[in-house]
Design a protein around this nucleic acid. Structure first.
Length: 203
DNA sequence: GACCGGATGGAC
DNA sequence: TCCATCCGGTCG
């Protein structure tokens, strides 16, 4: 499977990324938890929780570009989180990488994360995943299908996962756009944003 | 120009 | 439950 397979809606892309291989600077991993994000109100997948909701800006322009690129952002001024851009060039949509199983390069991952970290937690959570694979803000916009890229993607066959609401979002908090593979302790725990309106409210 | 508020994670 | 720590977006 290749880049063209990511020229799809974010939910389809999310299913495609589940079980796919991710290589980052000496570490290979299998993606087991993701979240789909859409775009502006006038686009095909309006999503108030997406960074792209208010249109292209300085930090989010990669999301509006062609599929198969990496969109990174800094969370809470501390952590780096990574998305795989999907949908056609000019249309904003992306999939947040939330958790992965480390397949090879455990020693490298432990060196980055700290040796006291349990193996299942090496790449659990979007910030930890980037830390384990050595992904930094400088990687924003790189091509995940270029063999020269330090971070690369190898798409697998479509996987069926479980779904639930996205973690920590204050807008569209009930939309079930998080997906994960069952029976993986690497999947992060669900935490609802304290700012989100009561469950069941309008989306 | 100031200020707000996170697509988090780890310590209590 | 609390908060460290940036910075783009928003509003005055």
């Amino acid at each position: 499977m290749l880049r063209a397979d990511l020229d799809v809606d974010p939910l389809t892309a999310a299913r495609l990324l589940l079980g796919s291989g991710l290589t980052g600077r000496g570490v290979t991993a299998t993606i087991v938890e993701v979240e789909a994000y859409g775009g502006p109100a006038d686009g095909p997948w309006p999503d108030p929780a997406a960074h792209s909701f208010r249109g292209p800006g300085l930090r989010n322009s990669v999301m509006f570009g062609p599929p198969g690129r990496l969109y990174t952002y800094r969370s809470h001024g501390i952590h780096v989180c990574a998305n795989v851009v999907c949908a056609a060039d000019g249309v904003a949509a992306a999939v947040l990488l939330r958790a992965a199983v480390i397949d090879t390069g455990h020693d490298v991952a432990w060196a980055r994360r700290g040796t006291s970290v349990r193996e299942v937690a090496l790449a659990r959570g979007p910030g930890n995943l980037c830390s384990a694979l050595g992904i930094t803000m400088d990687d924003n916009g790189i091509d995940l299908f270029d063999p020269q890229s330090p971070v690369r993607l190898e798409l697998s066959e479509l996987q069926v996962g479980q779904t639930g609401p996205r973690v920590g979002v204050s807008k569209a908090a009930d939309r079930p756009w998080r997906m994960w593979l069952p029976d993986h302790p690497e999947v992060s725990a669900y935490r609802r944003s304290p700012r989100a309106p009561v469950p069941g409210g309008s989306d």
